[in-house]
């Protein structure tokens, strides 16, 4: 494991969304066109996208304890899995690790969408503009000492430190949080052999759509996926409209494959 990691402490998040904007500011990302709210409560846009690499999701308020309602607001970005599906299935080896962070080499990316299909967290997305896949690179491609999102966070809900310290802090914090929220949990210690975004939650991870025990794609299957995408990308001759068709076909092939 590389030593750095993010700590998302949802018990300290006030939902100011500075992370979402600071990322766009530092990385020169444009705004998305939205209407009303795309997700629960104030969530906007709905999810991560090729131009939104940090996202704040507002969950519905849980009033099961009327004296102490829970409103969870969760920062999400690429989790930078130690064993990353996206990296395993990329047919062009465009996805690699830089200083331990999972990044996409834009020169090599062909926008095939393999990574999009295989990330269980739905992180990377292919842009409609340049037809390449984009996501958080922890500011290593646009370097600074502390990534823009964590640097901007006012309350300490999103911090950046050595991964070991992050885990230690998270475990200590969990003990305190459990006093008020007995189901509180930490996510990211072990999934995909360790994520680089550790999240403290007031309830169990499944409540927030986080899969507790995901299995990394196995190497044989990853190879067959790479071959399929490569072939389809080749036959689409790099023409965006054809590529689109190819992606869709690839996705269905892969999904069929997965079901089998």
């Amino acid at each position: 494991m590389s030593e750095k990691a993010f700590l998302v402490d949802t018990t300290k998040c006030s939902g100011c969304r500075s992370c979402q904007v600071a990322c766009k500011q530092w990385n020169n990302l444009p705004a998305e066109k939205t209407k009303f709210f795309a997700g629960p409560e104030l969530t906007n846009p709905k999810e991560l996208s090729a131009i939104t690499w940090n996202h704040v999701k507002f969950f519905e308020v849980d009033r099961s304890n009327p004296d102490h309602p829970i409103w969870t607001i969760m920062h999400k970005k690429c989790y930078h899995c130690e064993v990353a599906n996206c990296l395993r299935v990329c047919p062009e080896k465009a996805i690699y690790k830089k200083d331990g962070w999972v990044v996409i080499d834009q020169e090599k990316c062909i926008g095939c969408g393999a990574c999009v299909n295989e990330c269980i967290y739905m992180v990377p997305q292919v842009s409609d503009i340049d037809h390449k896949s984009h996501k958080c690179h922890a500011c290593v491609m646009n370097p600074r000492e502390i990534p823009a999102c964590a640097f901007a966070c006012p309350t300490g809900a999103l911090t950046y430190d050595n991964r070991l310290s992050v885990i230690k802090t998270a475990e200590k914090r969990l003990k305190e949080v459990k006093k008020d929220f007995p189901n509180a949990s930490i996510y990211g210690r072990d999934q995909f052999e360790g994520l680089k975004v550790i999240t403290i939650l007031r309830d169990r991870p499944e409540k927030y759509g986080l899969e507790l025990d995901p299995k990394p794609i196995d190497l044989v299957k990853a190879e067959s996926i790479r071959e399929t995408y490569k072939m389809l990308a080749f036959f689409s001759l790099g023409i965006p409209s054809l590529k689109r068709v190819a992606y869709r076909m690839a996705k269905s092939t892969v999904e069929k494959d997965r079901r089998a």
Binding site: R17, T34, F36, N44
Partner: peptide, 25 residues
């Protein structure tokens, strides 16, 4: 709301903020 400020001219003109809260609600 945090994403807008007062009568709005200083925020309703900024796309990064109108992405977050685009409409009167």
């Amino acid at each position: 709301v945090v994403e807008h400020w007062q009568a709005g001219a200083m925020t309703r003109n900024l796309p990064w903020l109108t992405e977050l809260v685009p409409d009167m609600f």
